[in-house]
Design a binder for these strands. Structure first.
Lengths: 203, 203
DNA sequence: ATCTTAACGCAACCGAAGTTGCGATAAGCT
DNA sequence: AGCTTATCGCAACTTCGGTTGCGTTAAGAT
């Protein structure tokens, strides 16, 4: 865990290639067939790596997901910085909407949530992923506080959660359609609550 | 679909017994082992019904979930009515928290969300379930509007969504712990936004 | 009471996911 | 270059979820 490539005990040429091939194949399989149809044999066939190797190094489907999640958590996020909290929050919630409705990345993102619901390791990985996202997105709020747009004792991560939560709620719980309008209203509501001081560290 | 028991073509004694036994076994299995471990064979063994019968009438695991969901959607919900929106909303979000963290009903509720993520039929059933819940909970807001506690053009269901969404977000997406405090803050934020007019039908 | 047939039980079968033991390959070290 | 051993490929096996064909039971109608 010291370097970027810190999983295998022998991270040299062959193992690295195997790892990269399996990771890529996992993402492709998820994008095409979704989580329900993700199988070790499918990933093995697509990657050209033998299935026993995949079973040994990743343990199974859950391991593949967890690995892909850790990879996804590392790459940074284009946090908006327009100079206005309102615009920033709207851009943020719209980013979430596209991330889950886009034909390319949508199935993959959805697969992460689905996997977390069935495997503790994937759940832990997802927790880490969103902790990272909260950290990054919180800057939107801290900047707004610095500009005096929001109360000084506002909890940044809490605003972020309130903004994006309704989008996720419709996507995965109530199963209602989501679009840019939903994103905008969610961002607006979170902002209104923040302005009213609802996200202060003391109630 | 005319009567309460409207699925089988021959709803008489035996079929009804089979149906009830399978439904009960499904809920028990979900509560004990969770959705990931839910199998037709397990339900068949526990219910005393042969597995071929279960496969024929329910089609598979997804059908079992969808059936259980429809059953759950029918039973009403103890919507709070304390006379204060703030108290009502808090009670509502707390109801959600206990519904998913309680050792008994928690795994079953979670299973419904998990199943919807993998099967379109379960997703449709879950959508219907929450549409019903929104309808029932909206009364909290309509009463508040009638009392003059909230703006007249407030969208009731939108307030409900905003109140409960952060709880679900932590449960299934960010994987953060939830308790009564989280429930109270989520209700408070939704209320603050509603008072500010963020849930008016016109932006 | 009798008859028709939908619904169920049963046993055998099929296929794919997951496991195991062993031999082959190639990192990484001297 | 040569050696050691972690890692991978391979084939056979096991297990279990799911399917099929057929005989049996009992619901519902006359």
């Amino acid at each position: 865990m010291t370097s970027t490539e810190g999983h295998g005990l022998r991270p040299g040429g062959r193992s690295a290639r195997v790892r990269a091939a399996v990771r890529a194949a996992t993402l492709s399989e998820l994008a095409e067939k979704g989580y329900a149809a993700l199988t070790v044999e499918g990933v093995a066939a697509r990657s050209g790596v033998h299935k026993t190797t995949v079973y040994r190094r990743w343990g199974g489907v859950e391991g593949l997901i967890a690995d892909a999640l850790e990879m996804a958590a590392e790459e940074p996020w284009p946090i908006p910085d327009t100079g206005s909290v309102e615009e920033d929050l709207r851009a943020l919630t719209r980013l979430v909407v596209t991330g889950f409705t886009d034909p390319d990345e949508g199935p993959v993102s959805t697969a992460f949530v689905a996997a977390a619901l069935q495997d503790p390791a994937a759940a832990a990985a997802l927790h880490g992923f969103f902790a990272s996202r909260h950290d990054q997105a919180a800057r939107i709020v801290t900047r707004a506080v610095a500009r005096g747009e929001l109360p000084a004792d506002t909890d940044p991560a809490e605003v972020v959660r309130a903004a994006v939560a309704p989008v996720y709620y419709r996507l995965f719980v109530s199963r209602e359609p989501v679009d840019a309008g939903v994103a905008d209203r969610a961002a607006g509501a979170a902002l209104a609550a923040a302005r009213a001081g609802a996200f202060g560290y003391r109630g």
